[in-house]
Amino acid sequence: MGQRVPEHFEQSDVRRAAEGDHAAFERLYREHVGRIHALCTRMVGSDVADDLTQEVFIRAWRKLDGFKGQSKFGTWLHRLAVNHVLSRRETIRRRESKQAFGEGILSRVVAPPRRSSGHALDLDRAVRRLPERARDVFVLFDVEGYSHDEIAEALGVSVGTSKSQLHRARMLMREQLD
C-alpha cells in the first residue's frame, strides 16, 4: 500500500487490516463500534442500528484500501457511516412501509432494555422525536461536532438551511426537555 508506517498504534492496525488481518480489524471494530452504533441509533433508530452498524464495518473493510491516512481512521470511518446511513435510509423507509418480512416478528422477539442513564435516555428519546432533517443536523452538529459546511455537503442542502434546521431542532429539544 505504500503507506508510511505510523507511530500510532491504531494506524498500524489500520494497515494490518488493509492487508487482510481480521484480528486487527476486530480491534478497530471494538474501539469504534459504540460511536458508530450511536450514530446509527440516533439518525435512524435502534431497530435498524445493529444492521446498519454491521454494514458500515463491512463496507469499511472493503474500502480500507482506499483509506490513505490523511485523516484519523475514526474520522474516516465516521464519515463513511454518515454517508452510508443517509444513503440507506431511503431503502429502510421503503422496507418499513411494506411491513417487512419478519420485521414485526423480530421486533417482538427482541426488546433489548437500553442501559443508559435516565438523563441521556431522555435526551435520546427527544432526539428521536425530532423531524428528520432537523434531527440529522442536530446529531451531526451538536452531538458529533461536524461543521455546517460539512453537514450541508453531506445532506445536499445550503449552509443556511443547515443553520436554520439546527436552531429548529434545539428549540424543539428545549421544549421537550422542559
Binding site: 471494538r30 459504540g34 452504533h37 450511536a38 452498524t53 435526551l123 461536532g145
Partner: peptide, 15 residues
C-alpha cells in the same frame, strides 16, 4: 447535553 452524549454500545455482539 448533546455534546455530552456518549457512544451507544450495541446490546448484542455484532462482530
Amino acid at each position: 447535553r448533546a455534546a455530552a452524549l456518549g457512544p451507544i454500545e450495541p446490546t448484542r455482539d455484532l462482530w
